[in-house]
Design a protein around this nucleic acid. Structure first.
Lengths: 343, 343
DNA sequence: ATGAAAGCGCTAACAA
DNA sequence: TTGTTAGCGCTTTCAT
């Protein structure tokens, strides 16, 4: 185990002072230096294999060049592309990311945020906030740059990047409506999450605009955005409203669960019941029936959030919009069929 | 932006020396302290909201309590479960992980390893090594604790955790053989990766043991473990050996690609050609035809690798096995059919 | 253009 | 049982 080469070593090797060495190796140097020392130091650094000690520099500059990325669960397929998007902008800027999974547990989230702060992260990209997230509010008020992704914290000025939930739900609703469906139920996501809430509101709005009465709408809320709760909520929907011909789901996993449930009771999607999703997660196009869904820009969202965080961290917070809404796109596949029910 | 509370602040607040405060707050303290100071300090820490500055402590102790996790690409579905496995053991030990994607580019890998070293990671879990990985060899020789996962570096003493490739390939081969297949081709993974190589060798061994002649075997190597190269390699296989009735693929993504190719030329899997995969990646069971594959213990592998790294980092390297082989399991689904070809 | 000196916040060897 | 001191490796202000 050979010891690392330090600035001091280079100073001894070149006969100049450590501070001079430091300056010579500083890429964005402002102080003037003689070409001679400069090249001498650089050559020595090269030869001895000098590598800067980021820990030491972090302590001195109070910048760790590290950001925290908080997500509910990396095994949820929509997150890996988002992370690659984040990486694509942060890595070239010299930042590294510490990724943590909250498993949607507020206590766990709180602990993880604390850990990130102990480690002195320069900022946080947060994709797992709840609507009234006090943990993150505190951190933000303490001066930590934060951007939320996919979700937002209510009544705060924390910048957020979301998808055009309303347009997405409208498009999904419209495609069902245009295929003749009138008994359209909503399999809603958790109301504690902004996505669940916004999509639910958009659904109601769409339905009303198409002339349906609020009282006639069947809406069942899933506790979590997963297949299990999708199955359960679908069963409740059909119990409450057996004449349902289409289920508009708050995301793909719920939709997958709903389709599983339909199959389990001998119904077919789309023949008996049409289903739509939201997100267009990876691999979805290989699963049968190929789900009609709303595609969100996953990688893009990561990129945009990271750019905003970058601005925040370098003090150009005046430039950043509090609200960024990314466009979505309806992907029509095979889970929606024309409705032949005689009403 | 309020300033962080430091040990010095606590020292002033309690009237004792910083070092005493440090001791009072050290969880695994060996020096004796009076109950009075202890509680006084702890109360002050609580009240003022003291949080230790890990950067400072890292500089002093030369331990960052951070590990690097190197993978080819997080969007490859087999990695998220592995990461959760790693997290499940490292997080309770106080470690955070910096995850980097190499995109299987050696130059990129080298740069990323350097970055991790600059940041002073205490160890690395590496899931993207190539067989003759000099970068990682150097790092290891420099004294950095390293464990490789899924793959191994040839001719080194770097501990590695792999799956029982041989048993897996044997099982896949046997199920094809038992269903009457005799014209079994191998869609091999890259020879530069230990998985590709080991699976290829196991295939040849299996075939020979079943009485096939090496010269008759059709083996086509894919350059990368992805669908695109799977499609291409499958086309080559059928060109070289049109009588092929089964393709044993080196992993799931290659198998998915092969099936896509078959479909594109009007052949059906499993009716016309049977296909097997390797890994059993998430969501595979929802894709039709449901792929018969070899399930590897993804989460478990992360757990084991992390445990070994933990031992290495705490100097108990005498306890760690260089080689750990995890058991695999054949998952029989719908992509293998009985062969009715008259030979 | 370069050197001197201080200090980021913490820990640990040594003293008392 | 507690205080003193030194220093991890770097950056930055001030002096020269």
């Amino acid at each position: 185990m050979k010891k690392r080469v330090t600035l001091k070593d280079l100073a001894e090797a070149t006969g100049v002072h450590v501070s001079t060495v430091s300056r010579a190796l500083d890429p964005k140097r402002d102080t003037p230096l003689s070409d001679e020392v400069l090249s001498k130091v650089q050559r020595a650094a090269e030869q001895l294999g000098y590598r800067p000690n980021r820990v030491a520099s972090s302590l001195r500059t109070q910048k760790t060049m590290t950001v925290g990325v908080v997500i509910p669960d990396i095994t949820n397929l929509i997150f890996p592309p988002i992370l690659r998007g984040i990486e694509s902008v942060l890595e070239p800027l010299g930042y590294a990311a510490i990724i943590v999974n909250t498993d949607s547990q507020p206590i766990r989230e709180k602990r993880l945020i604390e850990i990130l702060q102990d480690r002195g992260v320069d900022g946080i990209i947060h994709s797992a906030v709840v609507l009234d997230d006090t943990t993150i509010l505190h951190a933000s008020e303490a001066g930590l740059p934060i951007v939320t992704l996919n979700r937002r914290v209510e009544g705060s000025s924390i910048p957020y990047v979301i998808n055009d939930e309303e347009a997405g739900i409208n498009a999904a609703f419209a495609t069902l409506w245009n295929r003749g469906h009138r008994r359209i139920a909503h399999l809603a996501g958790p109301h504690g999450l902004s996505t669940g809430q916004m999509r639910n509101a958009a659904f109601v709005q769409s339905a009303v605009r198409h002339g349906l009465s609020i009282d006639d709408l069947t809406i069942v809320e899933a506790e979590h955005f997963d297949e299990r709760d999708g199955r359960y909520a679908a069963s409740r929907i059909l119990m409450l409203s057996p004449e349902t011909t289409a289920i508009l789901c708050s995301n793909d996993r719920l939709a997958l669960g709903a389709i599983e449930y339909l199959r389990s009771i001998g119904l077919s999607c789309p023949k008996d019941v049409s289903v739509t999703g939201f997100n267009d997660m990876p691999l979805l196009e290989k699963i049968s029936p190929r789900l009609t869904t709303v595609r969100i820009k996953q990688y893009e969202a990561g990129v945009v959030a990271a750019r905003i965080l970058g601005q925040l961290m370098t003090g150009r917070s005046n430039l950043v919009p509090v609200r960024t809404v990314l466009p979505v796109e309806l992907i029509e596949r095979d889970s929606v069929a024309t409705c032949h029910t005689l009403d």
